[in-house]
Design a protein around this nucleic acid. Structure first.
Lengths: 261, 261
DNA sequence: TACGAAGGCAGGGTGAGCAAACCATTTCGT
DNA sequence: ACGAAATGGTTTGCTCACCCTGCCTTCGTA
């Protein structure tokens, strides 16, 4: 309507020829550009956000969520939609609600048993690890540059606490997640925190049903200590290197147990 | 309904006490968990996907998009929704359409001038760089492990082509983007490709209106060559290090021109 | 005992998205 | 020359996610 441009037959070839002069390179495969788009509904997004926060232990079992009327405001959604999400989380056993003045929505304690990873999840384990790798490397480098002393103290307390949890994988994993998320928070970049929680959630789904002997956890936490030492010394390069080794550990575990993707 | 659990007053404190024994650590700030959720519509997602692909040069000017009936199938959306997106892209001047048997939707040539970055974009430039950092570091390491010889050849051709574009920032940037995206493709991880295109799109918005003298581009491309050398030798550690320096370059440029975030 | 804060509903309105046609225009093959 | 074919453009009607609004039920606390 506003456009009156026409596209005569010969032009396109001419254009291609001119382009070929300046950039004699093969085109990027457009498969990535034309792959399916997924429209996330507010309901799904909310279930996902709260669900992973709970199963990662970011919201402690027994703790109380903000009131529905406040929470829907914070999340920027209507109360109806929030209630749909809470209903789903109630049915899956992640939360329960009590009425009355001192009522509210509480995180279940103990948490419901986690589902075994879906076949689709297992098929994409390599991609999951890759994304986690990217987030963790970036966070390591930036944390080494920016982590404040208080944050570092908290991180070292977490690593010390992990030393006492080598026999209990469930507890270890939960605090492990918290350490990595706190590391992301130390970068001061909210998107990285979000990316980290997502990545850790996906990793937890993969790792939950795999046996982790204390020796493995001990060596894993030794790497935590080395990582924090590097960060304390503001040695980003070494931090990245230690993190790389740290991630290779879990990757090797998965590579041994899962089909090579 | 299915749950009959009650939460008497005293229990919560007891739970906290027990938890405190095993993990004497401060809780993670739940601000990230309760931050607003954004429900992406399929329409927005499509405009975004195609729009950045076009403005990044992944879809060459003058090239033809798949027919609407095929494209909507590939994108997994209805034709109506796709057409909404195409209408928006037509009005913004990114594409134009022709009817008839040999018709179709074509990428505009030349491309419309890019809008100056919005204030919100400028306010978050640091976060944008942080996310790009994470993606690029991860991609560098994984590409060093996995890049196939053919892919490496293509990358080196791109870097060589860049040597001849030091005077024309627009052309340089376009091929630069293509190099980084191809690097991501060399990892074989579609999510990383997506993350890379998103990151490059955001960076382009920031960089488009900043002068880049040829000397800067020359040193930038020298780093490309060093990066590819490291990858060819399968030296992931060095690849990450070179990439870190590469990114520090653009970060310093932005830090000098934009308000410190 | 009454107030107030919390969760639990029910009705109605809005818009995104989808499906399935049909129309208009151009080109190609016979 | 003509019709089939392939394209973008248009219309219609439906579904469902989401939101708004108000009201009800429960129950600790003043």
């Amino acid at each position: 309507m506003t456009r009156t441009t026409k596209a005569p037959a010969g032009d396109e070839a001419a254009i291609r020829a001119r382009k070929a002069d300046t950039a004699p390179v093969e085109p990027v495969a457009p498969d990535a550009v034309f792959s399916p788009v997924r429209s996330h509904t507010a309901f799904e997004e909310t279930v996902d956000r709260l669900g992973t926060a709970i199963s990662l232990g970011l919201l402690a079992p027994g703790s109380r969520l903000p009131a529905e009327r406040e929470l829907c405001a914070r999340l920027g959604i209507s109360r109806s939609t929030l209630r749909q999400a809470l209903t789903a989380l109630t049915q899956s056993g992640h939360v329960f609600a009590t009425r009355g003045r001192a009522g509210g929505t509480f995180v279940s304690d103990p948490l419901p048993p986690s589902d075994p990873p879906s076949p689709e999840m297992l098929a994409r384990w390599r991609e999951t690890c890759d994304q986690r790798l990217a987030v963790e490397l970036g966070v390591s480098l930036l944390a080494a540059e920016r982590a404040r002393p208080e944050a570092l103290e908290g991180l070292e307390r977490l690593a010390s606490a992990l030393d006492g949890m080598l026999e209990d994988f469930s507890a270890y994993r939960q605090t492990d997640v918290r350490l990595h998320v706190c590391l992301a928070q130390a970068t001061g970049s909210p998107p990285l925190v979000r990316a980290m929680t997502d990545a850790q959630g996906a990793m937890t789904d993969l790792l939950a049903h795999i046996a982790h002997p204390p020796e493995v956890l001990a060596s894993s936490n030794a790497q935590h200590h080395r990582l924090l030492a590097a960060i304390r010394e503001r040695d980003g390069r070494r931090a990245v290197q230690v993190m790389t080794q740290h991630l290779q550990g879990t990757e090797h575990v998965l590579a041994g147990l899962l089909p090579s993707g």
